[in-house]
């Protein structure tokens, strides 16, 4: 197991290297540069700006010096907000987005696993259709619709919660978390239902039931373990996706998170910011995919055997 983890972490190095390299050259192919503006910049000023950000050097030279700085922990100043280092900007948005993503994932898991389990116990009955249909709402109401709709109902109609902000007013974290989590709740519900159905037909569940164990023990202790495997392998990408995909929710609710930086950087051609957020996100993706693989292995006894066997 430990060897497996170390191997995977070692494999992450070429992955990150490839991502940085491809991104570095890819973003420079997109039309328009970081300093293009409606009013054309005076050539002398443009030259000064390009010199300041090393853009006047040959591209390969820029690439090498970027890596040089990166190893020193310096991602360079953002092109759009040049008063800040990219790493400072990321760190300013990260805690907020991570908190948002965490709450959203919690919403998704609680609603999704619950609905999926209940549905799988009595497939093709009202007990199946009703929770699954409720979970479907998250998919039918995309974020850009669900957010304003919840604001309209709970913010203006019932006057229960603030309509925007994050940590400014009491209760303002509720609507963004639900909005972001709702879509994922439907995915979790479907994957859980599917996984549970597979497992509930397995022999060991029948054995457990035959032994006369209470049904909830059978579900929680035996069935959930195997039935959650598809959900768990979805969680890694899901959390990374929540981090990167929080853009719409952050914009709708005026949340100063990372998602806004990530998407805007692409439109601003903010090269250093694109690279910085990409490096950051790809690291997260690698880590979370690893975690969800480890979790899936731990939940699946057969795989566990195989890895410990391979490790020796």
């Amino acid at each position: 197991m430990i060897r497996f983890t170390i191997m995977r972490l070692l494999q992450a190095i070429p992955v990150l290297f490839t991502v940085i390299t491809v991104t570095f050259f890819l973003i420079r192919q997109a039309p328009g540069g970081p300093f293009d503006a409606e009013k054309p910049v005076i050539p002398a000023v443009k030259r000064a700006l390009e010199a300041k950000y090393n853009l006047d050097q040959p591209i390969f030279q820029q690439y090498l010096s970027y890596f040089g700085d990166l190893f020193k922990g310096d991602m360079g100043p953002s092109f759009k907000y040049p008063g800040w280092q990219v790493e400072d900007l990321i760190m300013s948005g990260l805690p907020i987005t991570a908190e948002l993503a965490f709450y959203a994932l919690l919403v998704a898991l609680v609603i999704g696993v619950l609905a999926g389990c209940v549905a799988a116990l009595k497939p093709n009955s009202p007990q199946d259709y009703i929770p699954m249909s409720l979970a479907m709402i998250g998919i039918c109401f995309p974020t850009f619709l669900l957010g304003p709709l919840l604001v309209l109902i709970f913010g203006f109609g019932l006057n229960l919660v603030p309509v925007s902000g994050w940590g400014d007013l009491p209760g303002d974290k509720i609507l963004p978390s639900i909005t972001l989590g709702a879509a994922y709740a439907a995915y979790v519900a479907r994957l859980t239902r599917g996984g549970m159905l597979e497992v509930l037909n397995q022999d060991y569940i029948r054995t457990a039931r035959a032994k006369g164990l209470p049904e909830w023990v059978v579900i929680c202790k035996h069935a959930l373990r195997g039935g959650l495997i598809p959900t768990v392998s979805f969680l890694g990408p899901a959390f990374a996706g929540l981090l990167a995909g929080s853009f719409v929710v952050e914009t709708i609710f005026q949340i100063p998170g990372l998602g806004r930086f990530y998407v805007q950087a692409a439109f601003n051609r903010d090269y250093t910011m694109i690279l910085g957020t990409t490096i950051f996100l790809s690291t997260l993706i690698v880590v979370f995919n690893l975690l969800s693989d480890l979790l899936a292995t731990w939940l699946n006894p057969r795989l566990r055997q195989q890895y410990s066997g391979g490790g020796s």
Binding site: Q11, A12, P14, V15, T18, V19, V22, T23, L26, I27, A30, P237, A240, Y262, V263, A266, F267, I274, T277, T278, L281, S282, I285, V286, N289
Partner: peptide, 13 residues
């Protein structure tokens, strides 16, 4: 790992 790398590329760009 190729899948991981593709996940991380800036999609909008």
């Amino acid at each position: 790992r190729i899948v991981d790398a593709l996940y991380a590329l800036p999609f909008i760009i």
